[in-house]
Amino acid sequence: MSLAAEAFVSQMAAAEPWPESATLYQPLKEDQILLSDCASSLAVQAYLRMCGLPVQVVYKSNAEYMSPSGKIPFIHVGNQVVSELGPIVQFTKAKGNSLSDGLDDVQRAEMKAYMELVNNMLLTAELYIQWCDDATAAEISRPRYSSPYSWPLSNVLAYQKQWEVRRKMNAIGWGEKTLEQVYDDVTQCCQALSQRLGTQPYFFNKQPTELDALVFGHLFTILTTRLTSTELAERIKSCSNLLSFCRRIEQTYFEDKSS
């Protein structure tokens, strides 16, 4: 988004209150969505719930192509469409809802750094396992990704996506990594998060921030998604405070709505 457009958006956003009809779009939950998209989508939902902003989740098989940046999820609020957690946080801030206002400069710097840690290691590891591990790609990712399309197109799209992700992995130097090394990276990332969290209820003490939403989105999705092997979830389970952190957020923000 250009700066001028962004300034315009934030002005518009500030003028209007959050509408009741806000919607979040993501791919079909049962047969289509993949681990990494599901995690990003859950992170945004958790963030909006923490802000107390109601949003209705809509499942569309072509959500990826509807999104302005090609990434999932995106929200449709009033006459605005915003995708991904970072811009959505900016957007809600312009509307006067922010979770990180209480932090000082150093804390905000640390919060941003940890969010990049999750994106850089957890999200990349999810993508790696989905598309670069041959067993997972063949059994789960390609069939699910191409489920809405009929035969020749489904293959073309799935392999195109796989090709793209693999090229990205090569570009960032993950192409030569083995699956074991990726799991080790995940462990390292979880230990860092676990160290940072310590015994606090949230990363920055009493109040949840967008970092909590992002971490919850990824960890909870990894813990509750069945893959070809349970190794990824096992790596997270070794950090007990992260498990109780996930349970706490689930109970606080998700349970009363579902019951």
Binding site: A113, Y114, N119, N120
Partner: peptide, 15 residues
């Protein structure tokens, strides 16, 4: 804790 912070800031630089 400091090791965790380094890891996070290195990710910030890379991203």
């Amino acid at each position: 804790r400091e090791g965790a912070d380094s890891l996070a800031f290195i990710s910030l630089l890379e991203e």
